[in-house]
């Protein structure tokens, strides 16, 4: 899968991939929850790249964010991963499906200009090139090799630099625009709990318990997990005393948080090897430990 994720990035093919995570490595825990593929999603294919990933925490969100994932992948012409986990994957809850005309759909960036002027990898202002379809008469070529604007292989460092920089910048420079973060009582908080996917729901009782005891605790739930919302996290680290990261793995997103916190806030990991969700007590203790 990972090699072809790279092909999708290189060819700039709008793609949505769903990963319902279970405990690993290997066959691991079929099928019990984990969130231990979150770094694989980001770095699993070889080479340097950026992509988009979203993490729903309920059936309703799985529906809504699936549409969002398709829209983002079309807009940026980049593979977009929907990082679910076993809990969300097997969950049964009521969902509301809107009327088709109420669903917002980002159309594909289809080129319809003069054929002789078309270059498949000439970037538009947003750094995203225009697409054509096979059979539309453009007779284009595309490859997983490093290529120039014509889509032809170009085996040299200059072209590699130009291409890889653009592929990364078209996402990186839009990270704030892409980011969907749900923040709750973050202003003036002493501790902020950071989570995504099922862990966001599991963290709620611990946050409420600590609040009831007077701890100023906020929460930040990452709906989009990649690109990492660096700017917001950096800001937050300057405002609060501690960032508590709750994830169903032995520490993955935690290191991103630690990196951007850069010592401005204490960073605390609540790890879990997978197989079940966190014990609320562990999250509560971490919040208490982070409070000034």
């Amino acid at each position: 899968m990972m090699e072809n994720l790279g092909l999708g990035i290189m060819m700039e093919v709008p793609t949505v991939i769903i990963n319902v995570q279970r405990g690993g490595p290997s066959t691991g825990l079929p099928t019990l929850p984990a969130q231990a593929d979150i770094m694989q999603a980001r770095w699993g294919s070889h080479g340097d790249y950026e992509l988009i990933a979203v993490a729903p925490s309920s059936p309703q969100e799985s529906f809504d964010y699936m549409i969002m994932a398709f829209n983002l992948s079309e807009k940026y012409r980049v593979p977009t991963l929907v990082m679910m986990d076993e809990c969300v994957g097997h969950m049964t809850e009521k969902i509301v499906i809107p009327e088709p005309e109420e669903i917002e759909i980002t159309p594909r960036k289809l080129y319809d200009g003069p054929k002789d002027e078309y270059l498949p990898y000439r970037p538009d202002e947003d750094m995203v090139p225009w697409m054509v379809r096979a059979g539309d008469g453009y007779r284009f070529h595309t490859t997983g090799l490093t290529h120039d604007e014509r889509g032809y292989p170009a085996m040299n460092a200059e072209c590699q630099h130009e291409l890889v920089t653009r592929l990364m910048d078209k996402i990186r420079t839009k990270a704030d625009e892409i980011a969907v973060l749900e923040e709750d009582e973050v202003d003036g908080a002493d501790v902020v709990v950071i989570s995504y996917g099922i862990s966001s729901r599991v963290a709620i009782p611990a946050v409420e318990r600590a609040r009831a005891e007077g701890v100023k605790v906020g929460s930040l739930r990452m709906v989009t997990v990649w690109p990492f919302p660096e700017n917001r996290m950096r800001e937050l680290a300057k405002e609060v005393g501690a960032l508590v990261v709750v994830e169903l793995n032995m520490g993955q997103m935690y290191y991103e948080v630690e990196r951007v916190a850069a010592g401005n806030a204490k960073t605390i990991l609540v790890p879990h090897a997978g197989g079940w969700v966190h014990d609320s007590e562990d999250i509560y203790q971490a919040i208490k430990g982070g409070a000034r």
Binding site: R139, F140, T142, Y152
Partner: peptide, 14 residues
């Protein structure tokens, strides 16, 4: 081969 024929052509992965 895909790189030399002037039709819609795709050079994919191994």
């Amino acid at each position: 081969v895909a790189g030399y024929v002037k039709i819609d052509s795709f050079h994919t992965t191994h």
